[in-house]
Design a protein around this nucleic acid. Structure first.
Lengths: 146, 146
DNA sequence: GAAATTTACATAGCGCGCAATTAGATTGCG
DNA sequence: CGCAATCTAATTGCGCGCTATGTAAATTTC
């Protein structure tokens, strides 16, 4: 008779995993109005804050690599929301810039965070405390990678 | 001049999203030894706890639907870890049962949670508190789904 | 007890997310 | 200068995760 593994319900990693999916599901109807997926929305948020950045910088911000971001950006480009252009100084880099349409979407996206805040049922302080704990957790996990 | 959207770094949903990926990355080298992906590992955890359950019940446990789970279980079956068999009483249902190989993997998987607990750098109580907050958050998000 | 509805699972298509590989540009060093 | 080492992005392949659709079996309705 050996020790039993924990139940998934008792595991922190599963709570994070399931909460992440719940967030994506919750955002979906709101993002459908903008015809954006959740990862695309995150990329747009970064661009609204820091326009004209490289693929590398965007990936660092979202903790994603080019294998994930390049096709995502190509879809945003096909939608006419961003431009992808080689940097003329350093041709290895590709710079991402918002089109006027991409910039214009910012205002329509403003209502989303408010709706989401309601859905979480958290106070500002409660949400902030939870966010900070998750940030610290992510940093420790990344630091402990082998 | 209009209001600005929040930075991704300030958003709770992004903290959950990024922590989820960090967990997956952290698990990967440990799970490589078992040749399991992270979602496959979660499914095996449920089966080690509740063998001989339906696809529906497994999906409810992991908050995933048949479109996600069916191919995952087919891969586990191809690996010889589980059997998929129609229920003879209610032929709509497919019951999932561990093979001896699937059961035997349980002992090898026991070391993983311990390594992960170290990686999080959290105390038992701290991790438990965070898990509970995320559980409550997921429930509120699901409940607020339109 | 036949028709309508519901339930459980399978399938197909799309978009991530990651690892591994490739291609091209830049840097570094003799 | 020349050539290797390094860096950056793109590409490819696989496994989720979801939506929509299909199919067959069970249940409900009348």
């Amino acid at each position: 008779m050996s020790e039993a593994p924990p139940s998934v319900d008792q595991m922190l990693c599963f709570a994070v995993y399931a909460a992440g999916h719940a967030f994506t599901r919750f955002y979906k109807p709101r993002l459908d109005a903008l015809e954006l997926t959740y990862p695309q929305y995150l990329a747009m948020l970064v661009l609204w804050e820091s326009d004209d950045i490289t693929v590398k910088a965007l990936g660092a911000r979202l903790f994603l690599d080019s294998g994930t971001i390049t096709p995502l950006l190509k879809r945003l480009e096909a939608r006419g929301l961003v431009l992808r252009q080689r940097d003329s100084v350093d041709e290895r880099q590709v710079r991402i810039r918002l089109t006027p349409e991409g910039r214009a979407m910012r205002d329509r996206a403003l209502a989303i965070p408010l709706a989401v805040a309601k859905g979480t049922g958290l106070t500002l302080e409660g949400g902030e405390a939870l966010r900070r704990e998750l940030l610290a957790l992510r940093e420790r996990l990344d630091a402990a990678l082998d």
